[in-house]
């Protein structure tokens, strides 16, 4: 381990405007010493991949509140991998329990559901990153 802070890109893909959760996670991670690259709303998968590459980020955090997670989260994993980027994808938001297994199967590293504590957010992002390096 080095002293370099973990760099994480946080974004919402597409139309969904529910950004309360993403902002919350951004502040939790910032206060825990992470370097947060906050892209905010209306991003595309391609744009997020480009930012991860340019910023040499260690992780991607997506937040979804509208049942698109089954399409968009696996797409993000696939796009990162085809760009040669082996960074974990962390998904937060409203994800029904029965969707968790298929998402993990598709390569999503961690799913943070409603009510996750700040400590759990920090710990799971840290673990997801360190388990790869």
């Amino acid at each position: 381990m080095t002293d370099t802070p973990i760099r994480i890109v946080l974004a919402k893909i597409g139309f969904d405007g529910h950004d309360r959760g993403l902002r919350m996670v951004a502040r939790i991670l910032r206060d825990a010493g992470f370097e947060v690259i906050y892209l905010g709303l209306r991003q595309t998968t391609e744009n997020v991949v480009a930012v991860v590459e340019q910023e040499d980020a260690d992780a991607v955090g997506l937040s979804m509140h509208n049942a698109q997670h089954l399409t968009l989260a696996p797409k993000m994993v696939k796009s990162l991998r085809s760009a040669g980027l082996d960074v974990p994808v962390i998904l937060g938001g409203v994800v029904p329990d029965q969707d968790i297994a298929p998402l993990l199967e598709a390569g999503v590293a961690v799913i943070l559901g409603p009510g996750t504590s700040a400590e759990d957010v920090v710990r799971s992002v840290r673990e997801a990153v360190t388990s790869r390096s």
């Binding site: 597409g14 139309f15 509208n66 049942a67 698109q68 089954l70 399409t71």
Partner: peptide, 20 residues
């Protein structure tokens, strides 16, 4: 969501959102 955002159902971002 696409209707609320002023975009049609065949917009590329509408995938998975139409009628949801």
């Amino acid at each position: 969501m696409p209707t609320l955002m002023g975009r049609d159902s065949d917009h590329e971002w509408a995938l998975g959102e139409v009628g949801r």
